[in-house]
Design a protein around this nucleic acid. Structure first.
Length: 506
RNA sequence: GGCCCCAUCGUCUAUCGGUUAGGACACUUGGUUCUCAUCCAGGAAAGCGGAGUUCGAUUCUCCGUGGGGCUGCCA
């Protein structure tokens, strides 16, 4: 049971990745869902960069994230955008990169300090580690910096105002922690999970400002979502248990909280959280392997969401029309490469023939320069479009147009086709004489078929027995488009030359 | 350990108390002018366990069990 009917109201959403690596496939799905909801309600999709962890920020990650989003067609209306292929920012609530908003966070942390919702803490990492060791030894299995230990640590709640001020003035490093009231019960309605209740939950005195002057996710996220007027937060399930902290922060500031929707995680085959060890996790990996954005989008949209109908293939436009949080699954979804490949095959076949040819031509020409100016390239490409799943398979599938294939006896003779080595000379001889008789103007699949069928019949053979050696002689491949098509496309001269060559194979 | 979330074919999922539990991928059988692919037709394949509510539970409740997440001066 869902409380919100989200279809008819306007919803601003945001996707806030951390530039700690290339865009993650799970992140792409979250971004897609955010984008779909915003577009569905004709509102804005914001891209914000959360680079508050300076140690984990990796160079180039930000660019990759933005470019990959554009590759997928998930284009932000506001925030970090691409302007003339360069990363830029756009919108009235900027900057949209958190490291450029430090002053804003500092100011808001001060508000919390002033209202006694937060306090300074001077404990060093060693102090904290010692505390954890001590508490664990005392039988506390999960020590926290909460009310139970807070009063024994070095912070502005245990020190006098003068002591605190002296430490601050002396430039001693400090963090700002969020003060958590005791014994609260937090309830909220998640747009995917319904009512979520944290009973008797112990929230820790979360650090809001780190000693390096950067905010943590919790502070920055809440402040930005409010300032950027985000209506709906769609994020991964790993954030579900920290939502009470965020809700409390909104309460401290006196701001209305946005709605939340926690999407289930993507899983490995063994149902653990999708990991690098077992899968390609960055979208870049899939781009490099040649997956189409349409295939990736279609596949991940359906990992955790379903339309309620038997439709499997979706364009972005259809996803925008049909997507709804109500139909998002609560449980995690295993990432199944085989199904992804099926979508890839479906989408590669949907490409217009001309575009398909234009896409594969550079690849083929890279290996066989002749293809560059081949006037018949489009016809050749058309024959393989439904035979390949990736563009990268094209060069091999078209190789025999540009180079004479290596032909082996093992390929020419084929048990399954009842082509024995003894029969081979007879078949090849027949092919040569019959093909020689055909006039250039009649050199087309239909006529070739008519002649070859007739000749095969009169030899008392089955059509497969003549066509297999022909196709093998022409392509040198165990599989390819049909013999008639290939012969027609190759032309009479080349065809005869290869049949001739096949006769020489020992 | 604590807190939280989740649970239908191998996988992604439909089902909003009554169905021969449906579809898709993968698998498999057969067909489609020769191979491969496409396409078409068919097959095998599922409600974690136990109580309860109900005339009737996959569906509602509870308890187990299992899986996952969080429990950082990471997000």
């Amino acid at each position: 049971m869902r409380i919100y009917e989200i279809h008819h109201c306007i919803v601003r959403t945001r996707f806030p990745p951390s530039p700690t690596g290339f865009l993650h496939i799970g992140g792409l799905r979250t971004a897609l869902y955010c984008y779909l909801i915003a577009k569905q309600t004709k509102d804005s999709f914001i891209l914000r960069i959360e680079d508050t962890d300076r140690e984990r920020t990796v160079p180039g990650a930000l660019e990759n994230i933005v470019e990959t989003l554009y590759w997928a067609g998930i284009t932000p209306d506001e925030g970090v955008v691409l302007q003339n292929s360069m990363v830029g920012q756009h919108g009235p609530h900027g900057p949209y990169i958190q490291s450029e908003r430090l002053e804003i966070y500092r100011k808001h942390a001060q508000i919390l300090l002033d209202t006694h919702c937060a306090y300074y803490a001077f404990d060093t990492k060693d102090d904290l580690e010692a505390m954890r060791t001590r508490e664990t030894a005392a039988g506390n299995p999960a020590p926290k910096y909460d009310a139970s230990v807070r009063m024994r640590m070095k912070n502005s709640l245990t020190m006098t105002k003068e002591e605190t001020k002296a430490k601050l003035d002396a430039g001693e490093p400090y963090v700002i922690r969020m003060k958590i009231p005791e014994g609260n019960v937090v309830r909220f309605t998640d747009d995917i999970r319904g009512n979520v209740e944290f009973k008797g939950m112990e929230i820790d005195d979360q650090i809001l400002m780190k000693s390096d002057g950067f905010p943590t996710y919790h502070l920055a996220n809440v402040v930005d979502d409010h300032l950027m007027q985000v209506d709906l937060v769609i994020r991964g399930e790993e954030w579900l248990s920290s939502t009470p902290k965020h809700l409390l922060l909104f309460e401290y500031f006196g701001w209305p909280a946005p709605r939340y929707a926690h999407v289930p995680l993507l899983l490995n085959q063994d149902r653990s959280k999708l990991s690098k060890r077992q899968n390609d996790v960055s979208v870049q990996d899939y781009i490099d392997r040649g997956y189409l954005p349409e295939a990736i989008l279609n596949f991940i949209a359906l990992l955790g969401w379903n339309p309620g109908t038997t439709q499997e293939l979706f364009t972005m436009k259809e996803l925008i029309e049909q997507f709804s949080l109500e139909r998002v699954q609560k449980g995690g979804a295993v990432f199944d490469r085989e199904k992804l490949d099926w979508f890839q095959g479906q989408w590669i076949r949907k490409i217009a023939p001309k575009e398909f040819a234009d896409r594969i031509r550079p690849l083929v020409a890279g290996k066989y320069p002749e293809a560059e100016n081949d006037p018949k390239f489009h016809d050749r490409a058309a024959l393989i479009q439904e035979r390949i799943t990736f563009f990268s398979e094209a060069p091999e599938m078209l190789s025999y147009y540009y180079v004479d294939p290596a032909i082996t006896k093992d390929l020419l003779a084929n048990k399954k086709q009842k082509v024995t080595e003894e029969l081979l000379p007879q078949i090849l001889a027949m092919l040569e004489t019959e093909l020689t008789k055909i006039a250039e103007k009649d050199w087309n699949p239909a006529h070739l078929e008519k002649i070859l069928r007739g000749a095969t019949d009169s030899l008392g053979l089955k059509i497969g027995q003549t066509l297999w050696p022909l196709r093998a002689a022409l392509t040198g491949l165990p599989f390819s488009p049909g013999a008639f098509e290939v012969a027609a496309a190759l032309g009479k001269a080349k065809t005869l030359k290869r049949v001739e060559k096949a006769k020489q194979v020992k």
